[in-house]
Design a protein around this nucleic acid. Structure first.
Length: 283
DNA sequence: CACCATGTTCCTTG
DNA sequence: CCAAGGAACATGGT
């Protein structure tokens, strides 16, 4: 579920719901998920603080909390890993099997569920310092993208996924962006032409914005009965006419026809991850 | 049973 | 310093 667009939709959802709410207690079922990894220091670090702002940087959720007595701020980072979900439910509602952390608020609880326990809730902000360009910010210009790509010989697909270069693009959207830009995933980043970089820049904005737009128009379905339709954990493929199935052009479409030219989508491995592409459109 | 999975970090090797 | 490759983390779907 979580690349930049999914995290952005989640942040917009949580922002008004968390504002000024106080953390009454903290339950950590999976100590490995919190940082610092001492349950006691994490709990003591967060309890009695009030949520002020909720933002996103790359794939991270950035929570600003006010300390008791409004003396200073605390930043908590959330990362959903591969399968994490974060949602509010009425206090005492049934909890999913793999609940890692619960923050008790007034009448509601913030549940961090993660079957694979790859996600994190952290009181350290050091991860943010390692992140590169923010694609949906004004600094993400074609010139900035060009500069960044010139310094790497990585194939463009893993380069796009490299968080210290560009923050927030993961395995699904990297393939989708390159297909829209008509660029081969194997092309070394530093050999892209000006016009290819232009297409890549425009495709990145289009694909990410379109995914945020889609996620924002589909009803959220959290909790026990929340259907997880692959990428998004909201909406049902059946109830969304232009739903999940039709949103992705190449990802997970091995041997299915390319929507643009009809040739068959190929799957290859790059840097240990699956890359999907159209060998004709992306030569 | 096998293989794959939206992610990051750490390690070794070149 | 860069890049590549592998392993680890832990569970679920097909």
């Amino acid at each position: 579920m979580p690349e930049l667009p999914e995290v952005e939709v989640l942040v917009r959802h949580l922002r008004p719901l968390l504002r000024r709410r106080k953390v009454l207690s903290v339950t950590v079922n999976r100590p490995k998920v919190v940082r610092p990894d001492s349950v006691l220091s994490f709990r003591e670090g967060v309890v009695n603080h009030s949520f002020e702002t909720v933002d996103r940087r790359g794939k991270y959720l950035v929570f600003q909390l006010l300390k008791p007595g409004r003396q200073g701020r605390l930043t908590m980072l959330g990362h959903l890993g591969m399968a994490g979900r974060l949602y509010l439910q009425p206090t005492g509602s049934p909890l999913p099997k793999h609940t890692a952390v619960i923050l008790q608020l007034d009448g509601v609880e913030l549940v961090f569920e993660d079957p694979r326990y790859f996600g994190r809730l952290s009181l350290s902000t050091s991860a943010l310092e390692k992140l590169g360009l923010e694609p949906l910010s004004p600094e993400f210009t074609q010139a900035a993208l060009s500069r960044l790509l010139a310094s790497s010989r990585l194939p463009i697909k893993p380069a796009l996924m490299s968080q210290p270069r560009i923050a927030g693009i993961g395995n699904i959207y990297a393939s989708e962006i390159l297909h829209r830009a008509l660029i081969s995933p194997f092309l070394p980043a530093n050999v892209l032409t000006r016009s290819q970089i232009g297409r890549l820049h425009r495709a990145t904005l289009f694909i990410l914005r379109e995914a945020v737009r889609f996620g924002s128009t589909v009803p959220l379905a959290f909790g026990q009965d929340g259907t997880r339709n692959g990428l998004f954990y909201y909406g049902q493929a059946t109830s969304a006419p232009s739903g999940y199935e039709e949103r992705l052009s190449v990802y997970d479409r091995k041997n299915l026809p390319c929507s643009r030219c009809g040739d068959l989508i190929q799957r290859v491995e790059q840097a240990g991850r699956s890359t999907y592409y159209c060998p004709t459109c992306q030569s």
